[in-house]
Every structure is written in C-alpha cells, then in structure tokens.
Design a protein around this nucleic acid. Structure first.
Lengths: 250, 250
DNA sequence: GGAGAACTTGACCATTTGGTCAGATCGTCG
DNA sequence: CGACGATCTGACCAAATGGTCAAGTTCTCC
C-alpha cells in the first residue's frame, strides 16, 4: 500500500502548458481537493491512478510520447478514455507523472556512493541494482531513455539541477577514492556515464540484445551474464585491487 | 496513424495514376525509372533526395517516427510537402531510407575485428571510430536508438539476420583472442554490447551528458575525455597487456 | 434518507497530419 | 522546335487523436 508513488505526482498535478519550462509549476489552481475519506479502504482514485500509470508506462515505452495515444493507454488500463482525462487532464500530465514516478526510484540508487565505503563493493552493488531495474522495469528505463533521446523537453530542469548536483557530489566521492589509490585516475563523471550506459543498455536496447543473443526473451541467466561481464569490466578497468605490495588498505 | 508501420512492403497502395501510360514498367522494384540523363551534372532527383534525407534524419532524431511530420521535414528541406511525397511516397519509406543510409556505415566498423590483429589496437580503434560517429552524426545514432527502443518495427529482420550474424562472427574473433591469452575470459557478445553502450551513449544521451557536465554543447575536448576514459576502462578491463613475466593473471 | 462530492462515460468536436490529385512547368533529346 | 517524361505544387481530404461536456451513477457522511 504505502509505497505510494503518486506522492511525486503531486508536482505534476497542477500541470499546464508545457514545452520546456517545467520548473514553473506554480500550482495556480488546486485540483479538486480529494476527499479521501479517512476510510482506509477503497480509495478509487488511487487505484485508478495506479492502473493508468502502469498502462501509461507501457504504452509510452512502446510508442514514445507522440506515438502513444490516450485511447490506447485507457484501453490498456481498462477504463474509458474520458475517465483517463478525469484523472490526468492531459497526456503530458500523465507522462510527467510516469517520469516523476520513476526518477524517485533511480536517483536514490546513487546514495550508496559514500567515501567511507569500499569502491569495489559499492560499484558492484550499483551495477547489480541498475541491472535489476533494467530487468524488472525495462519500460521505465525506456520511457526515460526516450525522453532524453528527444532532448528532454520535460526533464531539462531535472537534469540541470537535481541530477547534475547529485553527480557532482558523487564525483567527489570517486575523486576521493582515486586519491586514496583505490581507483585508477579517471574522470569521475565519465565513469558514471559509463556505468549508466552499460546497465541501461539492457533495457533500452533489449530488442537488439535479444536479436543478437537469439533469445525470445532475456532470461535471468542472460542478466547474470551481463552482470558478470560488466562487473569484471568495470572493476578491473577502473578499480585498483589492494595489492600486497603498495600501501595498506581497508 | 498506421497501427503497425512494420508492414515490410506495403507498397500495395495503388497509385491509380491512370491506366496505361506508365508503360507499366514496374520491372525492377525501383520506383519510377529515373532517366538519369547521362548528364553528369544537376541530377535533380539525387540532390533533392539527399536534402530530404538529411532533413529527415534531423527531424526523426528530434521527434521520433510518430512525432515527426512530413510537413516539418519538407520545410526543413525547403521543399513543399507534396514534393517530399513525390520522392518518398510515405513517411515510412523515407524513414526506411534514413535507416538504411546509416546502417551501411555502421555495420562496416566491425570489419577491423580480425584474428590476426592485436585486440588492444583494434578495440581502441573501434572505440574511437564509434565515438566519432556519435560526435559527427549524433542524429543518425539517435534515429537508430529510437528505432530499437520502440521494438525495432522496421529493423527486426536486420537485427536478426545481418547484425546477429556479424556479431556471431566477431565473437569468434574475440574468443580466439581470449584463447590466446590476449583477453580476459569474458562473454564476447556482451563485450560487444558494452562497447556499443558506452560509445553510443554520448550521442543518444547527449542532453543528459551535457547537463551533467554543464556544457552548452559537447566539445571536442569532451569527446577526447570520453575516449580516454572508455579506452582505459575497456583495455584495462578486458584486455591482458603482454606482461614480461609469465601470463599468469589474476 | 438524502445532499453533495466523487466518479463514469458516450457523444462530440477542433486540429493535426499523412497522403492524393490534377494542372502547371522544366529539361532533354531526337 | 516539339514531344514527353520528370518535376513541382497549391488545394484538398479522410482518418486519427487530444480533449471537452453534460447527463448520469455511486459514495460518504451527517
């Protein structure tokens, strides 16, 4: 129950004109205040919003923002189209909600990058976690990829503010590890890009991966292979395993 | 809009132009037979097709297949829309042309993977080459990425045939290198995925990269940094540099 | 029990958009 | 020069689609 992802949708409620000015959400008009009778049960709104969000994630992933139709989303959610527009006034608002819904999850994955921890452990964990997202929620990744691919009309400010800051911070941690001789001297930001690239690839380019591997679907084993390969590549390529010779470790 | 653009060859659209005058010479799949007067100069058709293809690449990259409008493409090519449809009967046909136009270039880059050559040299070259494509023709990469992202409706067969076979072949080469102790024992296909992922990332996720790096545009220096990072990561992570002492690694 | 909010939905509508057409105009070659 | 195909293009059109409405139906709570 809890895990209400809709919470983040808050910011997308009072949506209005869009285009590229996303931060301007001033909420000029409070949406119908939801009664939400304390009744712990049967919150119709929540139930329907979740269904719509899930359907939307799938459709947006498959068709992109322009290619997706509210009719198809509604159909997939098994609701009449007019009902979809009752919960989400516009396609853009629904799209925003889907994005917000996912960013919340992603951003936090970088939290484990802290100077005190051991980089090889952190990196291995991160790869595993991101790869898991690619496996469990490929559509979320695809919607995000599609958004970025087309110039991030809705996420420009998110990228420039939150994400940039976050990476800036974590780059500091990586730099610290480098200074400590735990990592090779590489550019921290590019290192992060590389991590993102290889892990998200399995969701975004899933069709290609499947075609090349000759699979009808990517199996758990395929992801295990991917994880093993990526981990080895990154750990060997970017980390410096504590050698008996040099300075102490841990 | 057409539900499924895949329709491999939906040229069934009867042009109903007339009933005979066209010599009914549908001989080769080729459309209207181009006179191509030996006139070495001013081949109008070619000139216009090129302009349309370039405009289309840009628009498809920015908007995706569904989001792109033939009107915008035509405008960008500075031609009336009807003229666009004179050269490319449908949006799908134009889109196909854009894709084909690029695959031709990409597929060949893998040619350098031959057993005789030194892997570290080959890989470094490949990374550099792919990264160059990302820099010089980001739109081509984006159109491709978008196509794959949405299930490769137009490229399914290409992926399953040509690409798969090509990777299969090159995987053999990588395996050979591994057997020779020149590379670490990794999965060859996943290794290729990793190469693609990190290099194309700079074209497909350009906006994100720019945002995080705080650049208005990615500079040559940025790509140099990327190349250095990727090369180090991959070479250190996947190759085994000839050690004076025994080959014992690990 | 019933007032009013929350929710539902079929019917509509204004735009957008891919694609067509028929009548010009241009270019080339015998 | 004249024929004829290649090229050009403004005007259209039918289908698709985002979004609106107003008339219901269901819930909640006093």
């Amino acid at each position: 129950m809890a895990r209400d992802p809709v919470a983040s949708a808050d910011m997308s409620r009072p949506q209005k004109r869009n285009s590229s000015s996303d931060t301007s959400t001033k909420s000029p008009k409070r949406r119908r205040l939801r009664k939400i009778s304390a009744n712990g049960r049967g919150n119709i709104r929540e139930s329907n919003e979740v269904r719509l969000l899930q359907a939307a994630e799938t459709v947006f992933a498959e068709r992109g923002f322009s290619g997706a139709t509210t009719a198809e989303i509604a159909a997939r959610a098994k609701l009449p189209k007019a009902n979809l527009h009752y919960y989400f006034r516009t396609k853009a608002e629904l799209y925003r909600a889907v994005l917000a819904n996912m960013l919340e999850l992603w951003l936090s994955e970088l939290d484990r990058f802290t100077a005190e921890r051991d980089p090889s452990e952190v990196v291995a964990e991160y790869i595993s976690a991101k790869l898991n997202w690619s496996r469990r929620r490929p559509n979320a990744s695809k919607v995000f990829a599609n958004e970025i691919l087309h110039g991030a009309p809705f996420l420009k400010s998110y990228l420039a503010r939150d994400l940039r800051q976050r990476v800036e911070d974590k780059a500091g941690v990586v730099r610290h590890w480098i200074d400590q001789g735990k990592m090779r001297p590489l550019d921290p930001k590019h290192f992060v890009f590389q991590l993102w690239a290889v892990t998200q690839h399995y969701a975004d380019f899933e069709v290609q991966v499947r075609a090349v591997l000759g699979r009808r679907r990517l199996t758990e084993a395929d992801f295990a292979d991917a994880a093993a390969n990526i981990t080895q590549l990154i750990l060997q390529g970017a980390l410096i395993s504590p050698r008996p010779s040099g300075r102490a470790h841990k």
